[in-house]
Design a protein around this nucleic acid. Structure first.
Lengths: 401, 401
DNA sequence: TGCATTTCGTTCGCGATCTGGACTAATATG
DNA sequence: CATATTAGTCCAGATCGCGAACGAAATGCA
């Protein structure tokens, strides 16, 4: 099928930077002529651009140990390099979190082209409150669409990050928002219409994808730990999200640490979240909020540092269990845990040493709170890259309708 | 590609029982003529057989609620049904376990056609002992090959189940065998030569696949718990094995239950295996071996029943954690845990109730100790079904060489 | 400057394979 | 025995990847 070959070629261009047609052919095993044809389609579709690439960057043949036979020298007709087209298709990422709304537009290459964050308390169980939040989200989306249009970008799809469980685009529970089992489709009807439509996803899962694509450090198999009021987790396996049978995989916050521990909002007891989440740390440190906790840690306040370190030990125990079950290549600490990393990691490492034979790589996210929105925007463009033919079909159908 | 279409058609025939060409066409979306051509290839290759299917079994249109419009009646030209060819290609599964060696041959349909088990203590760290075990395994394999030949079956490949960690067909650790980091290729050289060659795999993983294919109850997403001296686990996601980044996923036995618990052979402490494995139960029940434990439980001995129930509670806590991380559709208890199920399950259910909001399906394996060998044999035929073109290419190359 | 060399990309005919419709085969119904 | 219905085959037509030959654009050496 040419659909799969289009995806193959586009995937190479996306993942391996600028390439010539000949390089793509060599990597994919296709013929030069086949690649030419496929590339022509992709260029015409506005997904790939060609530039005359005079740049004498590091040549492909510059591998170390240069024995006499350098495979490729600078001779011969220069290649024209293929890039992802940074005009045209773009992804819109939205995020509804406890205390802010955010929007990010990124182009096909993944680069953020527009970003806007509104601080706002979104909690509230009432249907009216939910509607107001969604209205404001739609306004944010329309602003983003306008800003995108000014840069010659057209939205191909919308991804929305929410702090809760999602099943089939339905928000099942968002405890920290006090929202329960909501069908958001009516409220989301006001969003811009796009070929790929709207997709809802768990915030921690999208943060993991954001880390994978834009963090610049995560391997293809890792677990993202999002420490916030709750503790969420996103599992990435072979560069793809692992959702489990019902989309509830990765609930790292509810790993059982103490079978007889305190009751948790999830209905269980002794969950990690209850013992090492933001509230637990704040209580043990004797401070009033997150900012004070961070300040005291920076100042070296003993009580706070001890509290964080102890939370780190508990987190480490949970991560040992995660490693035995999932065998990831690394773990990435995100959210609050990233900010607390200097004081948290010693505890984490201590527990990992006590419970694991092989060491586990522990990384700290550098994306901050943007990971989830950027992941949401990136997931849209990733869908285009994974199935360009499908996107073009939808795009044409939408344009004709 | 026709390779993928061959796999598509063969997969339908394998999974959806006997089908006509027309039914295959309807299910796959291919044309009747395309299916005819593909089926012809598969028949010629000896993977599919055609039978004139006069059988008036339950017609496809016999769905309940028979409103006036039964979609398919008995009129028209009768279909000739396509089956997997039960002669020709077969898979050989071998198993090296602590106290026995086993071999099973199964045909393309997965039916076991030969089975042989030898009781034998295979423990021993010495290189000589390992060589003797592999010699006997090779003898078992040759006997199986001869028995297969008598039934007109030719071995397509060999899968070997071992109770330890496997990376790239290399046995890294098998603590219960006292084997460490062995390259088994020299010892396995005496095995029959087959198109698909020899593949080594963890015993718990293959038991999970055996349960999936032959147990008749496991859904596509589940976790298999193999309770033996150690506690192993196999994770199946979407009908495929989940191995993790380094092939060590599913080590359920080393979920941390008590961060300050007793040291475990894995280097950690407070692992499930140490607290609810066979040795722990036996010690708590005050019996000498596994058979006595089972006997006492059947007789209603209070101490033994309490010990097993308490192990069940611990297992339940671990399964709650597993559920929060992996979100399976069900859990299957295998090995010792299957035999102990009547006394174990109450404790498991109790803990699951305490720690999970949603109920988790807990199933009991009915395959007994055969799960892993059958999974090993089945994995060979599954590889053929997943990529018939690849198998045929190898088969032709091997025949020519 | 001119020509060989090298590498890139395109053109063109061939072969494989999927599609769609027409056609034959085999059965039940009336 | 004719008709309706379903299964499977046969036969153009179209698509697409392959492979080889060709033209394009640069370097290097005389």
């Amino acid at each position: 099928m040419r659909a799969s070959n289009l995806a193959l070629v586009l995937g190479q261009v996306a993942d391996a930077g600028p390439l010539s047609r000949a390089q793509v052919a060599a990597r994919t095993g296709l013929t030069k002529s086949s690649v030419s044809g496929l590339v022509a389609d992709l260029v015409e579709a506005g997904l790939v651009t060609e530039s005359a690439a005079r740049g004498s960057g590091p040549a492909p043949g510059s591998a170390s140990g240069g024995a006499g036979s350098t495979p490729t020298r600078d001779r011969g007709r220069p290649a024209s390099s293929l890039h992802l087209d940074r005009q045209g298709a773009a992804g819109l990422g939205l995020e509804v979190n406890v205390d802010y709304l955010a929007a990010v537009v990124c182009d096909l290459g993944g680069a953020p082209r527009y970003r806007h964050v509104v601080t706002r308390d979104n909690r509230g169980p009432g249907a009216g409150e939910v509607a107001r939040v969604l209205d404001e989200l739609a306004a944010l989306a329309r602003a983003a669409e306008a800003a995108a249009a000014e840069q010659d970008l057209a939205l191909a799809g919308i991804g929305i990050a929410v702090p809760g469980g999602v099943t089939d685009d339905r928000l099942v529970t968002a405890p920290n928002l006090h929202w329960t089992d909501l069908d958001l489709t009516p409220g989301l009807g006001a969003l811009p219409v796009t070929p790929l439509g709207v997709r809802l996803e768990n915030e921690a899962d999208l943060a993991a994808l954001g880390e994978l694509w834009f963090g610049g450090q995560a391997p293809a198999d890792f677990v993202q730990v999002s420490g916030e009021i709750g503790i969420g987790g996103g599992i990435v396996v072979g560069g793809r999200l692992f959702r489990g049978a019902h989309g509830r995989a990765g609930e790292l916050g509810h790993v059982v640490l103490d079978p007889d521990g305190p009751a948790c909002s999830c209905g269980g007891r002794g969950c990690l979240e209850r013992l090492a989440g933001q509230d637990a740390i704040i209580a043990q440190a004797g401070v009033t909020d997150r900012d004070e906790l961070l300040g005291r840690c920076r100042d070296g306040d003993e009580t706070s540092v001890v509290a964080v370190r102890s939370a780190g030990r508990r987190l480490g125990v949970a991560l040992a269990t995660v490693t035995n079950l999932l065998d990831p290549d690394a773990v990435v600490l995100g959210g609050l845990f990233a900010e607390l990393a200097p004081w948290l990691r010693p505890g984490v490492e201590e527990s990992l040493g006590r419970h694991l034979a092989a060491p586990l790589r522990v990384l700290t996210s550098r994306l901050g709170a943007d990971a989830a929105v950027r992941g949401a925007a990136g997931s849209v463009v990733r869908r285009i890259i994974a199935d360009p033919a499908g996107y073009l079909a939808l795009s044409a159908a939408g344009g004709a309708a």
